[in-house]
């Protein structure tokens, strides 16, 4: 490393700075200027190294909009316990979580499903479980639907609630937009392809789904059980249907009895940084259980 010091010269009017000798009548002033510049440069270097050090204490999480609120709460608690650490949580879907983790844009990806066979380069750490529940309007008299009936409704073969024992009312099928992990899990569970589904409404996030179903007595949709149960308790006009004899509740997801459930994962590629490892260990520890249940998810 270069030494940035100013060495006073031997002569009375000789000043040295960075190996250059100033000996004219303005020597003092010019060498002073040089020294100031060197000091400024040193200060900048110091600041740069400081921010470099700070950057190594920074963690970026991107991915699933289902995992993000939970990860954000965990991140806040982790930051409180470890001053100097900064954790950024950004949403954009499970696909983005995987993409960003692979490209190195994020230290940790958030993925709201189990990893697929083509994703063997990633390691997943489950931090919580979430169930997907079928929801209908509160006024709907249908008590339960079989898997076959749900498939027939989503394929457009059953178009009226009368055909499954309900009122004479056309069915509004609410589906999720292409690329969402909720859709992937739904399709996988029922053995459907998205192009087979005859939907009347296609939605983006859970809240849009809940508002759509609550505003339409003939609607059927599927959203995260946690958010649906929360809205149901708050008096929103919707009802969760049981599946295969198990009522759709957070408690049943916790017991592992609810069939349509998914993992909420943190994923990393290969060797992750020590900080990422520490945060993942923290997210799987007992000290965040209250955060998981506060968000209507289930600890694994």
């Amino acid at each position: 490393m270069m030494v940035f010091t100013c060495v006073p010269g031997p002569g009375r009017l000789q000043k040295k700075c960075l190996g250059k000798t100033y000996s004219d009548k303005n020597a003092t002033a010019r060498a002073g200027l040089c020294r100031a510049a060197v000091a400024l440069l040193g200060l900048l270097l110091l600041l740069a190294s400081q921010s470099l050090w700070a950057a190594s204490q920074r963690l970026v999480l991107t991915g699933s909009s289902t995992v993000a609120p939970l990860a954000l709460e965990m991140a806040k608690r982790y930051e409180q316990q470890h001053p100097g650490v900064r954790i950024d949580v950004q949403t954009g879907g499970s696909s983005r979580g995987i993409l960003d983790a692979r490209r190195g844009l994020a230290d940790i990806g958030m993925v709201s499903r189990a990893l697929q066979a083509t994703e063997g380069d990633l390691t997943a750490y489950t931090i919580a479980m979430d169930g997907i529940g079928i929801i209908v309007h509160r006024s709907n008299s249908v008590a339960a639907l079989t898997d076959q009936q749900i498939v027939a409704i989503y394929r457009g073969q059953i178009r009226n609630w009368r055909e499954v024992g309900g009122a004479d009312r056309p069915i509004t099928v609410v589906n999720k937009a292409e690329g969402r992990s909720t859709l992937e899990l739904f399709l996988q569970y029922f053995g459907l392809k998205n192009s087979q589904i005859r939907a009347q409404v296609i939605i983006g996030d859970n809240q849009q789904g809940i508002k759509t179903v609550a505003g339409n007595p003939g609607a059927i949709g599927y959203v995260s059980i946690g958010s649906a149960e929360y809205e149901e308790q708050r008096g929103t006009a919707l009802r969760l249907l049981p599946m295969a004899g198990h009522s759709a509740s957070v408690a049943n997801v916790a017991r592992g009895e609810f069939p349509l459930a998914r993992q909420l994962n943190l994923v990393v590629v290969g060797q992750s940084s020590p900080l990422a490892q520490q945060f993942i260990a923290f997210a799987q520890s007992e000290s965040v259980r209250d955060l998981i249940s506060a968000q209507f998810f289930v600890a694994p």
């Binding site: 009312r169 509004t172 409404v201 759509t212 505003g215 339409n216 007595p217 003939g218």
Partner: peptide, 9 residues
Amino acid sequence: IASWQPPGA
């Protein structure tokens, strides 16, 4: 609109 002509959206 849904109460008149479902699905409304």
